[in-house]
Design a protein around this nucleic acid. Structure first.
Lengths: 216, 216
DNA sequence: CGCCGGATTGAAACGTTTCAAACTCCGTGG
DNA sequence: CCACGGAGTTTGAAACGTTTCAATCCGGCG
């Protein structure tokens, strides 16, 4: 596929809501957030995107961007023109299927966020978010491990629907329990079992391995 | 397509989480809810499905159901076997594309719910939910109109992440403002402009008309 | 040094939950 | 015909979790 790699600094917008787009992008390195801001000026992060993921697959089927994409860290991305995508899918239907599957996964994650924000309280919400990113980063290894998490407490607040102040207190609580530490853009899981317990984390929604082949 | 229509009473499960499925279903009449229950016994509704929608498209690509589907009212559904779906898509790629587009729409709605639950308070959350369903029901007509909404206050609580008691008080507030009335399984919009205003509703996320044709 | 982004603190105000009880409507059985 | 029970809605009051505001602290960088 025609590749065109771009390097962008942290805090820059990759795409702005409403802007018309004719390519989808692939995160090569770094962290992105999908942002939805409300008319009252508040802001919600509705998804995080990690290396290897495609944050705006919807661009293939919708003419103008449905949300803003923000770089949380310096990022390297590749833009794939819609036409190239179309050709690839026409030639190898399995590609289209894989992308469709990715879309379903995105939706499942969003619904899990709904449940997370709707049902759990502060500490558990944050724990759940971390559990999810840990898995998606493929960082899980035993009871203790760490991984890149270039996300400020304010961003966590925007993702979990709470105030930055309360995020701070909750993060401190998790630290005091020796479950989790967030330092300098990395997440240090100190007790994976405990963290999952606090989060009531049940990761099956992220398992889409051993998938059904829809097409030949 | 091979049709096999089923009639089910309210309160019955259409599919249970984890159950293996080999068909997707289409809602012909009635209301469905997608349910996610947490280990602590609480329950979250992560989506509603209206007539004409397909609540478990993921079944086409994932072997076992990712969530439970509950009938909120008596429903008439059609089950379409995966094989039939596969054939149809292979023959008419536009069908596959339309289904993919529907999946994207589902995801967008879920993300809007994330923002709704994360950012707004009680009254606005409920107002927003109603605005969405009004549009999806194609019921909007002038400043006043009504439509089927066979959803108890307890269900609204499960969908918006609040307690039934507080839903009750908020619904009363909306009634007192003459914005909305919920009576006997129907929603009566008394002041559409006001309701949208309270909800900070911005419906563009539901517009996927005039879509881009990905495939020939 | 002074500034800036980000993390941290305290205390009061606020929105929401919880609990327990009562009320309405409606279909069923005595 | 009335009593009963169940599902759904409504009520009050106290307890609770979270937000808000305003200030402070910390480390890195020009």
């Amino acid at each position: 596929m025609p590749e065109q790699e771009t390097l962008l600094p942290a805090h820059s917008d990759i795409v702005r809501r409403g802007q018309s787009v004719d390519s989808a992008c692939l995160v090569v390195e770094g962290f992105l957030a999908r942002i939805r801001d409300t008319s009252s000026g508040r802001r919600q992060i509705t998804a995080f995107y990690l290396p290897g993921e495609m944050p705006d697959l919807d661009a293939l089927l919708v003419p103008s961007a449905l949300a803003t994409l923000l770089a949380l860290s310096p990022v390297r991305i590749q833009r794939v023109p819609r036409a190239a995508m179309r050709d690839a899918i026409a030639r190898y239907p399995a590609i289209g299927e894989a992308l469709w599957r990715q879309t379903i996964m995105d939706g499942m994650i969003a619904m899990e966020w709904v449940a997370n924000i709707g049902q759990r309280q502060a500490r558990a919400r944050i724990a759940h978010l971390i559990c999810e990113v840990a898995i998606r980063s493929r960082a899980v290894a035993g009871e203790q491990f760490d991984f890149a998490f270039p996300v400020t407490q304010t961003h966590i607040a925007e993702a979990t629907g709470m105030s930055p102040v309360h995020v701070n207190r909750s993060v401190q609580a998790l630290r005091a329990e020796r479950a989790l530490e967030l330092v300098d853009g990395r997440a240090f899981v100190r007790n994976w079992a405990l963290l999952q317990d606090i989060a009531e984390f049940e990761g099956s929604y992220l398992d889409m391995e051993a998938p059904v082949r829809l097409l030949a």
